[in-house]
Amino acid sequence: MAGIRGNERPAGWLFVAPAVLILGLFMLLPILMALWVSLTRWNGQGSPFTGSVPFAGLDNYTKLFTDEGLARQDFMTSIRNNAYYVLLVVPIQTVLALALALVVNNRLLKGKGFFRTAFYFPSVTSSVAISVVFLFMFANGGAINAILAVFGIDGPQWFSDPRGLVHLFFDTPPSFLTEHSLFGLSWWDWLAGPSVAMCAIIALVIWTTSGTFMVMFLAALQNVPVQLEEAGLIDGASAWQRLRHIILPQLRPTTFLVVTLGLIGTWQVFDQIYVMSQGNPAKTTLTPAFLSYRTAFRDFDYGTGAAISFVLFLIIVVLTLVQRRLTRERN
């Protein structure tokens, strides 16, 4: 045995060396460097690792949560925007993916392969390229408003409309909502709902990701034992009852997975924001990921930008741990 295994030790390290080097140098080390920068006031000049860079301690973090000011207001606005985005994207894409999978999986229908391909294709294309297409479709007088006009609806100017969906229902805000505030935003602002502009981005994201999740549901559906459904049929259960009491319970693990993967992904939205809105109008499409980029690379406040990244990191890591725990329980 020793003869065969003898040369494995150095070989093992040699095999992993390139990957370890690259991942260590461009993932692990940068994270540590950014952790340090998030404790400083580095402005992009020279190296952040010399004594001349002012040390800020936890200031960059407290600025986001406890200190009154523009930094906190922007950060909380970005959290609010992203929360509404998550609240709409995750449920809609999950239900849509499940519904499409159920229809595609129907044994009576032909052309399964074609429809699966059609629904899945958007998710493999470049996020930047597809954002360009949606920018055109949601433009003033674009395709979406042309469709809405057919139904007699006068479409909004999507990307310049900062009004929140909830705000659309009120002419004047109730005074008790504007009087109280939390983390620098009034209750009224917290309750705004996603802006009209954000809705266009939400539509794009649901459109791109539903196909991926549909494929996951399809794979799970194929593992549901046919006998179970037939038993339900014999017992005289209606289609809805079979779905509700036989199929859905079987899909529970996949549903959990799709929801948590959705939660993890939606907190990272960046490309679409960069291409379509840059956080505008009136900061209503600002998200933590884009805010951290903007703070560092446009305002040259790398410390605050890095601090925002780490808060976002924390949110996503918690969600990832939940997802891994759920997957493990399932296995």
């Binding site: 991942l23 140098l25 461009f26 993932m27 692990l28 080390l29 940068p30 994270i31 460097m33 950014a34 920068v37 190296s47 952040p48 690792f49 993890i264 907190w267 990272q268 960046f270 990921a289 951290s292 980029y293 560092a296 690379f297 790398y302 930008g305 890095a306 990244s309 780490f310 976002l312 990191f313 996503i316 890591v317 990832t320 741990l321 891994r324």
Partner: peptide
């Protein structure tokens, strides 16, 4: 652990290391 690191939080870190 690295697989759990979301790419968007690496924007500033990557810039720092490339710059350095």
């Amino acid at each position: 652990a690295l697989m759990a690191v979301p790419p968007v939080v690496l924007l500033i870190p990557k810039f720092l290391v490339l710059n350095q």
